[in-house]
Nucleic acid binder design. Sequence first.
DNA 1: TTAGGGTTAG
Length: 661
Amino acid sequence: MQSLVMKPISRFKCYSISLQRTSFPLSLIAIFLGRSSFSSVAAAGWRTEPSALPRNPLSIVNDFTMYCYQRDLGKAMEALDSMQRHKLWADSITYTELIKCCIAHGAVKQGKRVHQHVFSYGYEPKTFLINTLLNMYAKFNLLDEAQTLFDQMPEKNFVSWTTMIAAYSNAELNYKALEMLIMMLRDGVRPNMYTYSSVLRACEGFSTLKQIHCCIIKVGLELDVFVRSALIDIYCKWGELKAALYIFDEMVTSDLVVWNSIIGGFAQNSDGDEALNLFIRMKRSGFWADQSTLTSVLRACTSLALLELGRQVHVHVIKFHRDLVLANALLDMYCKCGSLKDANCTFTRMIVKDVISWSTMIIGFAQNGYSRKALELFEEMKASGTKPNYITILGVLFACSHAGLVKDGQYYFESMKMLYGIDPGREHYGCMVDLLGRAGKLEEAMKLIHKMKCEPDAVTWRTLLGACRVHRNMDLAEYAAKKVLSLNPHDAGTYILLSNLYANTQRWDDVESLRKTMKHAGIKKEPGCSWIEINKQVHAFILGDKSHPQVNSIYQELNQIIWRLKAEGYVPDTNFVLQDLEGEQMENSLAYHSEKLAIVFGMMCLPEGKTVRIRKNLRICGDCHDFAKLLAKMENRSIVIRDPIRYHHFQGGICSCGDYW
DNA sequence: TTAGGGTTAG
């Protein structure tokens, strides 16, 4: 029997405790006082009596235990080395504290040293301790080490299996995660709520998800809040929003994470409206938004181009100023809402920037028509030491393609592998096809498609088709269109593009034939729609729409504006009319495009000098582009239009896209 | 005593 005398060096009382095992003492104190009490005792300066036990094995273990609870990794490792030399071991709980400390510090080497120590000289650690080591390897993403250790375990319990399943799920090795679940079941170990909440993420097929969901219901674990949020999340990831909402609405109690799951799910599935509705419900239920909530709300604002609402969210973002993910979402919101001034300000103020911050700003400049700024920022990014990734290069090529910077684009494309180690992907080729095609180099664009290392998809061919439309190359357009439709026979956009081309070359019979094909196949053109946010309310306009309460005054104002613009030299560009119409009829079919109605409504409602910001679902037509340019000059007003691909900032008779879109 | 859910750029 050995004894340990502990002396307080502060105001605490002295304790004398008799002990029987070297690996037992301070853990007993910890349990006796409660772990937090022990931690505070250790932190307050308790120490072993040095004169009493200078090299006593017990004091070595005590030192080790104390350093582990103090989270002093360096000293704990020194003490561990000393224990190893003396063939001493501490208790499992103490090792767990040390392993947690290794995980927190990303200390892989030290973690492996602990692993080696607890198996040294034939020592047999408990299953509980091996589980902690498994978890450590999982957190370090050292899955081979975890699997080897798992295979060597004399006894595996449900935590061992669940740890491995979670490890493979987190690493997106979904097949392995599901395989582990099957093996777990075959081993006769019952999965619990921890297991199911981990394995759900690994469901790659909808039928697998359904099967696991059935198992969850059968064993009555659907009520567990973690399982339920995992279910909501995976259904959202599969785009099954109705199912996700059903699971969410069934919940009796919920917590903030579940709210975040459902709000995030809708925001990520481009249903910003429902995401914002759910956010309002969440607030009414008494929850306060955290970083995750605000990130999803900003994403919803971004998809709906709600700048004013986004600004309100910004106020709440300030208290989480250290959250990089949230800061990036805010930056993206300002970029996508076309407010480059706010975006630049946000970007400049960010103390820490990662590759996503830089890429967001580069893409933001490129989409808003500031290609040169995008390329300058790319150089700045490299100078800062941030390594570009796949998406950054995509943004750079996007900047080149949208400004017709053929030589720059070719340089970045050809050197991306050598300089940044990034293989060109389908999207990079797509940008180059766009760049070459819209610069009139259609043959080169075609050759590049044939040289692609990956198979061109419908988007690639559609890009070429878009360039053919600009340069009125009918033969290549028909070829590209056939390619698109062979890959995606229901692509309404391609029918419309081809129809536009036929219309531009007065091939009205072909226009009619296409329309019949579409009708026969049940393919419908998405109607052009524009949105504008006025005083926190969103107003939607559809081509020729007359449902708005102020419809009469809007149409009256639009007609007057067109009349005044014509006096200034505006000539409607009837190349964008699809029907076989003549004269005034052709002009009328252009006059009431949704963006024109939205612009006019914005000018009627917004104070003088306030920028009119429009979001629309289809690419802007040439006539509306001319209309917006001339109107911005005539009324001395900035107009910003965001279409699905890029942004147009109209000011003083010119557009930021330089008429190149 | 060990294992589980939500957020950012194309």
